[in-house]
Design a protein around this nucleic acid. Structure first.
Length: 530
RNA sequence: CGGGGCGUGGCGCAGUCCGGUAGCGCGCCUGCUUUGGGAGCAGGAGGUCCCCGGUUCGAGUCCGGGCGCCCCGACCA
C-alpha cells in the first residue's frame, strides 16, 4: 500500500509543482505563504472547503530535493519511522532485515579473522569516561546521563554508553596479565547513545545500532596491523556485499576519534556528491591502556602496557546504501543484502487464469532454492501497483507471471537497476533457476560500476585553491595537503568541506599544499560530508 | 545553542483575520466491477481541534502561559 509520506506541520514543502494550479513551487518566504495560498483559491474558482491535495505517489526527485527524497524514501519504503523520543528512530522490520543481512556479512568476516562476540552493559560510571582526557572532551557534550535509579539519587551518575572503550578498558585490565592472554579480540553488537543536536534517520540519530570491536595486543605493530586489517574487512564488505565503492584512508588530526593515535576510514560518495564516513577503525596506541592500566608481563618478565584498537560500523551504513544506489523510483538494494532478492508478482483476470498463474508462481518460488523470494499474493491491488511498490522497496529482481507467460511456458524478469523495458526479459520457465543468480550477480556488478563511475565523474584534481573551493561544491577534490590543521580549517570555514581522508592509495611524488603552497608529501580528499 | 515555521480523524491540509452544527483529499472497512506499470463506483467507520488557564450565553477561532515537532545555521559514527 502506498504510504503517505509523513511531513511534519510547518516543515518546508519540497519544491515541485503546486498540486492545485501547477505553478512551480519556490521556497515561499513564510510571510508570503498565506497570500500565495489565497491567490490559488481565487484561481480555483470554488474550492468550497479546502482544495484537494493529491496524494504524492511519486517521491520528490533526487535532483530536485535530495534531502526530502531521502526522508520520504526511508518512511515510504518502511525502513524506519520516527520514534516518540526526539532524535530516535524505530527500525521497522524491512529495515531491520536489511541490517540483519549486514550484520551476518560482517559477523562472518569478524569470526574468520579470529574475533568473538560478547555483551557489555549499557551503563558506564561517569568517572570511567573522565579517565582519558581527549575521550571525555570529545564525548561530554553529547552524553545521556542517568542520575536516578530505583527511586534514589545515584551516588555516581551513570552514562549511557556513547561507545565502550572505557568499560572495555576496565575489564581488559582485569583479564589481561600475561603475554599468553594476548591478543584479546572481542566484538560487541549493541546500540549506543549520543545526544546529537540535529538528527536524521539512519545517518545521525540519538541512539544507533552498530558493532564495536575492541582488541588488545602485545606490540604497537600488532595493534596497528589489527586496525588496518579491520579497515580492509570493512572495505571488502562495502564493495562485495553492498556494492558501495569506498576510499580507504587515514583521518586527519581534527577528524580523528577522541582518544585515538590514528583513525582510519572508508569514505563513500553519496548520490548528491557528499561524503559519508561509512566505517572507521582506530589504532588507540597505549592511550586507553595507560588510562585503565591494561598491563601484561612480557616474555622477559617486564610489565608492559597493551596496545589497543577499536573499530565500528553502524546503521548509518543503511543510509549509505540508500544514498549511493537509490533512484527516483525508490530504493535500489544490493542483491547480496536485500531482504528479498526476488519478488514474484502474479497477474490474472479470471478465476481460471488465477489458478493457472498461482500454480506457476508456486513452481517458480520452489525452483529458487537458495534465493530469498517473496511472493506477492495480495488481492485488491493491481499488478501495476505492486510493481511500483516493490520498486520503492528496492527489490533487485521482479518475476512477473501472467496468462501469456503461462501459455508460453515463460516468465518475465525485470531488474530494478534498469527501469522499464530495458531491464525486462522473458525466459523459459526452466531457465529461471540458472538465470536468476546470474542476474543478481550482474545487478551487483552494475550498481557498483555505476556508483564508482559517479564518484570518478565527480572527483577532480584542482590546480589551485580557487579551483578546490569550486570543486568541493560538486564533489571530491584530490589535492596536495601539507598536513597543517590551519589549512584544513581555512578550507572548512570558506567552503564547508573537510579533509575526508588521506587515501592509502597515493600517486607518489610530492607537491605543494593546495592551500598554503608549502611542500606536501601526501594528497587528501576534500569534500562536504554528512 | 541562535533564527524561522507549525500543532485540527492514520497522513496531507482548509477553517483562525471577522467566535455560532468540525470540513476536504488520501488512506482504512464492506460490496460489486477490475487486474501485463500506481483501478472505478456505491456505502461506511473514525476527531479530548497539543496542554493549562482566562474572556464570552457560546472558543478550533480572541487573550495569557506552557509543551512538542519540523526546517535553516555553529558541534558529531
Amino acid at each position: 500500500m502506498p504510504v503517505v509520506p509523513r511531513r511534519h506541520r510547518g516543515e518546508r514543502r519540497p519544491p515541485g509543482r503546486c498540486t492545485r494550479c501547477g505553478v512551480p513551487r519556490t521556497t515561499v518566504r513564510p510571510a508570503l505563504a498565506r497570500s500565495a495560498r489565497r491567490r490559488h483559491a481565487v484561481k480555483q474558482a470554488t474550492p468550497a472547503a479546502g482544495a484537494p491535495t493529491v496524494a504524492d505517489e511519486r517521491l520528490p526527485s533526487r535532483s530536485e530535493d535530495f534531502a526530502e527524497w531521502y526522508n520520504q524514501l526511508v518512511l515510504r519504503a518502511e525502513l524506519a519511522d520516527y520514534a516518540p523520543v526526539r532524535g530516535c528512530m524505530v527500525v521497522r522490520p524491512y529495515g531491520w532485515a536489511l541490517w540483519e543481512n549486514i550484520q551476518a556479512a560482517l559477523d562472518r568476516r569478524f569470526k574468520a579473522t579470529g574475533h568473538v562476540n560478547a555483551g557489555f552493559p549499557m551503563f558506564i560510571p561517569m568517572s570511567f569516561l573522565e579517565k582519558e582526557r581527549e575521550h571525555v572532551e570529545g564525548f561530554s557534550p553529547e552524553l545521556a546521563v542517568v542520575t536516578v535509579a530505583g527511586g534514589e539519587e545515584l551516588q555516581e551518575p551513570l552514562v549511557v554508553r556513547p561507545t565502550s572503550e572505557t568499560i572495555i578498558g576496565h575489564m581488559y585490565a582485569k583479564w589481561i596479565k600475561s603475554h599468553r592472554d594476548l591478543p584479546v579480540l572481542i566484538n560487541l553488537w549493541n546500540s549506543v547513545v549520543r545526544w546529537e543536536k540535529r538528527t536524521k534517520l539512519f545517518l545521525r540519530t540519538a541512539e544507533f545500532y552498530w558493532q564495536e570491536g575492541h582488541t588488545a595486543h602485545a606490540t604497537a605493530e600488532e595493534g596497528e596491523a589489527e586496525a588496518r586489517q579491520m579497515l580492509e574487512v570493512y572495505a571488502d564488505f562495502a564493495e562485495n556485499e553492498a556494492a558501495v565503492p569506498v576510499i580507504k584512508g587515514r583521518k586527519s588530526e581534527s577528524e580523528k576519534f577522541a582518544g585515538a593515535v590514528r583513525s582510519y576510514t572508508i569514505e563513500a560518495m553519496m548520490g548528491d556528491t557528499r561524503a559519508l564516513q561509512s566505517a572507521t577503525s582506530h589504532d588507540l596506541g597505549q592511550n586507553f591502556a595507560r588510562a585503565f592500566d591494561i598491563q601484561y608481563l612480557d616474555v622477559s618478565n617486564t610489565l608492559q602496557y597493551c596496545w589497543t584498537t577499536s573499530w565500528g560500523l553502524s546503521t548509518r551504513f543503511v543510509g549509505a546504501i540508500i544514498m549511493v544506489h537509490g533512484d527516483d523510483q525508490g530504493l535500489v538494494l544490493p542483491p547480496r543484502l536485500a531482504p528479498y532478492q526476488v519478488v514474484v508478482v502474479p497477474i490474472y483476470r479470471t478465476d481460471e487464469e488465477r489458478a493457472a498463474v498461482l500454480a506457476e508462481v508456486e513452481r517458480v518460488g520452489r525452483s529458487l532454492r537458495d534465493v530469498r523470494v517473496r511472493t506477492d499474493l495480495r488481492d485488491g491491488v493491481t499488478p501495476g501497483f505492486k510493481f511500483n511498490d516493490w520498486e520503492m522497496r528496492g527489490v533487485p529482481l521482479r518475476v512477473e507471471v501472467g496468462p501469456r507467460d503461462v501459455a508460453q511456458g515463460t516468465v518475465t524478469l525485470a531488474r530494478r537497476d534498469l527501469p522499464g523495458r530495458e531491464g525486462k526479459e522473458t525466459v523459459p520457465r526452466d531457465a529461471v533457476p540458472a538465470r536468476v543468480p546470474e542476474l543478481l550477480s550482474d545487478i551487483h556488478a552494475s550498481i557498483y560500476r555505476r556508483a564508482l563511475r559517479f564518484r570518478e565523474d565527480h572527483t577532480v584534481q584542482p590546480a589551485g585553491y580557487a579551483e578546490l573551493a569550486e570543486a568541493v561544491q560538486r564533489g571530491f577534490a584530490l589535492a596536495w595537503w601539507c598536513g597543517d590543521g590551519a589549512c584544513e580549517t581555512r578550507v572548512k570555514d570558506e567552503t564547508k568541506a573537510t579533509v575526508r581522508c588521506i587515501p592509502f592509495d597515493q600517486p607518489g611524488g610530492s607537491g605543494r599544499c593546495i592551500v598554503c603552497g608549502r611542500p606536501a608529501t601526501e594528497r587528501a580528499i576534500f569534500g562536504r560530508a554528512y
